[in-house]
Design a protein around this nucleic acid. Structure first.
Lengths: 211, 211
DNA sequence: GCAATAAGTGCAACGACTCAACTTTTGAAT
DNA sequence: ATTCAAAAGTTGAGTCGTTGCACTTATTGC
């Protein structure tokens, strides 16, 4: 059998958030195989690259059938982004619980800069992970797709916090743009500066829209 | 043989731009089969939906082999977005040749509102086409992917027109956001208003950045 | 005319993903 | 304790997009 690593897959999130109650034996086993699959996948991907590892190979390494694998993960890309649970909660919290007097887009900027997408320093394992994602088009796209799914929730919070009507498209726009900012910045030589500058645009624009 | 339709595939563009010189017999034949494939594909797609038509079926309908099909179109999605040539030129021109005194983001807003993504009225064939694209995730994503490929070119033009340094990330940001605006707006009940509002955000933000 | 080149074919295959039928495990009710 | 239904897993065949390879046919420039 392969080693039972205690490694947690890298998260884009900030807070670890202690694991809740895995009660029944059933759910524990299920979680176990799920983890076995995700671990095997991540290991193989990092060793040889995402595109050079097949589904069957991962299934074999985790000692399950490919059908079982797909019952845990809807598509191949999902194997890479496991354990991304409370990213949305953190995102919304960053806006709701922002410091007194800070604007909404400023809070989003801080959250973006704080995120591990830019601050990969220190952890070489995570750095390798990030490099893999950024070098694989399929993974970049998938990640952005997941990210954008938070648009509506974020737009609602923005509306609440700013007093604008809940259906004002400006809220959706700000949410969407804020979520796209990292992507818009990532091809620059200095991504942090690029993100900041993108948010400057949003901040001054937003201040003009909210009296 | 199937009917040789003279229909031109719908374009997101504005100007038809008369076809240039198809000289050799070779290139004419090549263009012919290409058109045969695209026509067959579009017809089948509109009849039964994008996901319910297979590549092999399209190839059969166009009376070519699947290998030939893929020599003309890199992926299945490309069958839908044929003849989208000078979209980029039109986009850049909209900025460069904007009316005196109009801001860059305002020009982009006008261009977006002018585009057939929102003004599908009148042509029911095109309306059906649009509906199909918007109802098919794979197509929406592909379209947005193509669209975003113009980011760098647009950013360069924006830099030129605004006097900002060519590598100022703000230019990339504006370009990226402007290209994302239609997508951010398309889930709203009134897309035109949503686009306008999204651009309001960009306009006031941009005016603060450019003295 | 003749070779070089490009278009097109046929077929077999690969990898991601699905489906249907079947076995095993587990949670719980009796 | 026994029984039963749901859930987890397996197996194997199949679909679908896409690619590679070896091969034929047509067109072009000389």
């Amino acid at each position: 059998m392969s080693d039972t690593t205690t490694d947690t897959a890298p998260t884009t999130d900030t807070a670890p958030a202690a694991a809740p109650a895995p009660q029944g034996r059933r759910e524990r086993k299920k979680a176990a195989t799920r983890k076995a699959i995700a671990d095997a996948a991540l290991r193989l991907f990092l060793e040889r690259g995402y595109d050079d590892v097949g589904i069957r190979e991962i299934a074999d390494a985790a000692d399950v059938s490919t059908t079982t694998l797909f019952k845990h993960f809807p598509v191949k890309e999902a194997l890479v982004f496991d354990e991304e649970d409370d990213v949305e909660a953190a995102l919304l919290a960053a806006v709701r619980e922002r410091p007194e007097g800070q604007s909404v887009p400023a809070a989003l900027r801080e959250h973006a800069l704080r995120s591990r997408l830019l601050t990969a320093d220190g952890d070489p394992r995570f750095a390798a992970f990030l490099r893999m994602v950024n070098d694989t088009p399929a993974l970049r796209d998938y990640r952005q797709g997941m990210w954008l799914r938070h648009t509506d929730a974020l737009a609602r919070v923005i509306a609440e916090e700013s007093g604008l009507p809940a259906d004002d498209p400006a809220c959706t726009a700000l949410a969407h743009f804020a979520l796209e900012a990292p992507r818009a910045a990532q091809d620059h030589d200095d991504p942090r500066r690029a993100v900041s500058r993108a948010f400057e645009l949003l901040e001054s624009g937003w201040s003009a829209l909210t009296p």
